[in-house]
Design a protein around this nucleic acid. Structure first.
Lengths: 195, 195
DNA sequence: CTGCCTATCGAGCAATGCTCAATAGTGCGG
DNA sequence: CCGCACTATTGAGCATTGCTCGATAGGCAG
């Protein structure tokens, strides 16, 4: 497994970079980022510490790129899941099944959010993108700042409840879905009628 | 300021411990815990690194006690704020004004939640206690697991929205309060009538 | 084949968590 | 008042880890 990531000999910068980021993504799902050492990553890649610093000026920059990559993956996956739906029910159901299937990387990503400001930043960017998806799916154009904030906060609610459900299966899927949709409806202004 | 924490000479273990934890609490409000070094704390206390390890077997243990202390403070403060009220409106309003006044330590505490499992643990304990307060204030005895989970998730929602409001003042206080209460109502079963 | 470009390495530095044996206040029995 | 035990306190030192820098070596252009 460590070997599968290892390719000996001189390589092109792009290969190396993506290999290193790939390793980072892998580690990210196993434990909080800040307790992953450069030595470990280098060892898994079969290179020396120094080389990693040749590609990423600092540990932070490396982590930042890894987290960014994880965030992109996440957004793509959510979009794939909820892409066809554009009713509230569809989007929320998509979100829930997404978390049901992928709650581990999701947890991993958001667990690493608290660590430092530079991660936090990527984290809020990601959430902002998710909020946008939700808002357009809800056909709420030009929402007030308060509505944006409320939807962002609802996302916290949804994350927490969905993860709890995915991990401990408290309640039925339908009940959870009803709670999620009910909360969202109580928080955003009613959608405009008609198409 | 560093001097105010400094007391020279031999001291009783209890004094030292509480002094050190006090310093930790102070640091906690300034930046994420995991980037506070033992050297720094020791310097502020006017003692050597070694002594800190005499009182706390490991850095983690020290941090854990600091976070626990912060958590206790937080719970006491919330209780003080919402103590008299026992309507939904009263509790939620109390919670909101609490965060309005004390959002910095609150942020500090929860920002350090993502770092490691041992902090996470204290964090969930604290949240569980808050959920209990809410449930009794809501006069919901013997809630189902799902209701507990939902209230816990609502707390995430409330945290996020209240902090956003406290920091950027998006919307009026009444609007935010209405959102909070509306969401909570939509999430828990109706309270029993009568007194 | 020669020489340049650069991917790659190894040695070494500084910060930091942590250990351990030694030191120095403090209070108690005489 | 003296000395002794107890322990708060220290300083030196070790291992890990993020990071630097000069040296090496593999591959491509000419």
């Amino acid at each position: 497994m460590a070997e599968s990531q290892t390719r000996r000999g001189r390589q092109s910068p792009e290969q190396r970079r993506s290999q290193l980021i790939g390793i980072g993504l892998d580690m990210l799902t196993r434990r909080p980022l800040h307790q992953v050492t450069i030595d470990e990553v280098a060892a898994k890649a079969g290179i020396s510490r120094s080389l990693l610093f040749h590609y990423f000026p600092t540990k932070r920059d490396y982590y930042a790129e890894v987290v960014r990559a994880a965030s992109r993956r996440l957004l793509r996956a959510t979009r794939a899941e909820t892409g066809e739906q554009n009713t509230v029910e569809g989007v929320v159901a998509g979100y829930l099944s997404f978390i049901e299937r992928r709650h581990e990387p999701y947890i991993a990503l958001f667990r690493s959010a608290g660590t430092d400001d530079w991660v936090r930043e990527i984290f809020v960017e990601t959430r902002a993108a998710l909020v946008d998806e939700l808002l357009t799916a809800l056909r709420l154009v030009e929402p007030t700042e308060l509505v944006r904030a409320a939807v962002g906060a609802w996302l916290s609610f949804a994350e927490e409840l969905s993860l709890e459900w995915a991990q401990h299966r408290v309640g039925t899927r339908e009940e959870v879905l009803a709670l999620l949709i009910g909360a969202l409806r109580s928080v955003v202004p009613a959608e405009p009628h008609g198409s």
